[in-house]
Amino acid sequence: MGCVSSKGRRQFPGYEDPVFLASQTTFSVSEVEALFELFKSISSSVIDDGLINKEEFLLALFKNRKKENLFASRIFDLFDVKHRGVIDFGDFVRALHIFHPNTSMEDKINFSFRLYDLDNTGFIEREEVKQMLLALLGESEMKLADETVEAILDKTFLEADTNQDGKIDMSEWQYFVSKNPSLLRIMTLPYLRDITTAFPSFVFYSEVDEAAA
């Protein structure tokens, strides 16, 4: 393949060889190259610097760069593994790998735990869950009385915090999620199975031989 030169890839800070990224993730080389087409599009939507900043991430998710959102920000922060305020191509592929249908449940459970552990203490605390619940109510039409919010938190911690110490640790989370598998639905993007179909133009920019892909 490789019918068009893709020298421009070197302008992408953090660009990594698709063969290497494929070896580290569930994706094939062709799928990594298709993800690069998506990455190029998102990373050039506000500032064409080969990196995705939070504004571009929010714009891609909501079609509105001004929309602050606790949940999208949290996902961005977990994608931004180097804590630089931007996502490079390697970060992007490795993070999306978690959302692939073929990725292990263990990886998905670990990522989902970190998603809810807002202050990165290794525990999901009641205050964090309350903060997320209130953020959800703030962004939706849903109205709940304070007592109802507290009742939801009581029920949640009664079920999830099995040692009743007021916080959910990783082993409690693993058990809780095994009893409530629907909680992991957000951790799988069926779309990732068809990524080469969604971005067929990757073929024109491929640097890899068909045999390797």
Partner: peptide
């Protein structure tokens, strides 16, 4: 009325967690 849903079920419905939108180019 007893509460039937746990907090995480509600939270996981936030559109901010819907990464499908990333693929709508």
């Amino acid at each position: 009325k007893p509460v039937s849903m746990n907090a995480f079920e509600l939270i996981s419905r936030s559109p901010g967690f819907s990464l499908e939108n990333l693929f709508e180019r």
